[in-house]
Design a protein around this nucleic acid. Structure first.
Length: 320
RNA sequence: GGGUAGGUGGCAGAGCGGUCAAUUGCAAUAGACUGUAAAUCUAUCGGCUUCGGUCUACGGGGGUUCGAAUCCCUCCCUACCCA
């Protein structure tokens, strides 16, 4: 029983081909996939976020009470489940993912987490304990108008400890810290980083194998370009118009989703040309991939592998 | 052929006698990240450097000046307009 509590994670920058790898692994090792993607979680954002296509005639998920998202005959969780008008957070992801992991394991299958949102993956792998302070829309809106300098001074008064190591110029971080202070007095101390072992640390009785898709930068950029061209053809722009309509979203809200979602509204409002749109989204995607890699590089437990064969072999070793 | 506007760092684009290795944006490179993470934020970004400096730089050449990316002459190139 204990030996089965193993979880495979497939991660990597955007366009690196994670989804295909995850599906192949799921086929091979009787797995089910949990998406760790902060944008694919939302409904109505399919082409733009690169969701794997939903099977037209899917088998029913064995998991009760869930809305099954089946692709290539493999169940995918945490895709397409949240109304884009709603905010969803890393902490919420963690809770949901843990439940699903338990459920998959209970049914004797292998959980495979697949995604590019490093922070969300870390939340699960390192069992990050988020302070029990929910986002305060009102407070955020109010503080959002203040300068970073002012926010920093506020935090300094509220929690001198936290102010020592926070990024003093980052409003998002400062606001969250202040939010926590207002609710529970001060920001809880961050727990010490865990040590590493060949297959990742175990959290509770869970064990993780983190596999990174290793792909040269030039090649990745080529894939990003190609994939974008395809998305334009598939109607990414139309999808965003429909997204706005169906969920009654403001342009501003849509832009907050980033990348294409940031630039397409500008095109639709005639603020930039089509050529500029294509260029900007391409650059934004490249940039995003870079940020993802900066994050992933830090985690020395990730095994970077170049092709599926190696990945499968590593997974095999891990599971046995 | 005539007229006008221009030629500035990888690109776009400021500067218009000194405080300019040259505002800013983009790109590039590295990085941060604990309930917004496709978000948010930081640093570097002419060469060499013992990090104090130093050398080469604002189309080419010549000049004025203590001093020029900035003024003058000339040549070359680009855009638009008139022939």
């Amino acid at each position: 029983m204990e030996s089965r509590r193993k979880i495979i994670i497939v991660l990597g920058p955007t366009s690196s081909g994670k989804s295909d790898v995850a599906i192949r692994l799921a086929r091979k090792f009787n797995g089910e996939i949990i998406s760790a993607d902060s944008r694919q979680i939302y409904k109505g954002m399919d082409i733009g976020t690169g969701k794997v296509p939903r099977d037209s005639v899917g088998i029913r998920s064995l998991r009760k009470g869930s809305d099954p998202y089946i692709s290539a005959v493999i169940p995918h969780y945490l895709i397409d489940i949240i109304n884009p008008k709603t905010n969803f957070s890393a902490a919420q992801f963690k809770k949901k993912a843990e439940k699903i992991i338990e459920d998959i394991i209970k049914r004797g299958k292998t959980p495979i987490i697949c995604g590019g949102t490093g922070f969300w993956i870390k939340a699960v792998v390192d069992n990050v304990e988020f302070p029990e302070v929910k986002p305060d829309r009102e407070l955020r809106k109010r503080l959002g108008k203040e300068s970073a300098e002012k926010l920093f001074l506020m935090l300094q008064k509220l929690d001198p400890e936290r102010s020592k190591n926070i990024d003093a110029k980052n409003p998002v971080r400062l606001i969250r810290a202040i939010e926590i202070c207002k609710a529970i007095g001060k920001v809880p101390k961050i727990s010490e980083p865990k040590g590493s072992d060949p297959y990742g640390v175990g959290i509770g009785s869970l064990q993780f194998l983190q596999i990174g898709i290793d792909i040269p930068k030039e090649k990745l950029h080529g894939k990003i370009k190609k994939r974008l061209d395809k998305r334009w053809e598939q109607g990414m722009i139309k999808e965003i118009k429909e997204l706005k309509e169906e969920y009654k979203l403001s342009w501003k809200k849509i832009q907050s989703f980033g990348l294409g979602y940031y630039w397409i509204p500008l095109f639709l409002q005639n603020k930039i040309s089509k050529e500029e749109l294509h260029e900007r989204v391409y650059l934004a995607e490249k940039d995003y991939a870079k940020r993802q890699m900066t994050w992933f590089k830090r985690d020395k437990r990730i095994k970077w592998l170049k092709n599926y064969k190696q990945i499968e072999a590593e997974a095999e070793k891990f599971l046995n």
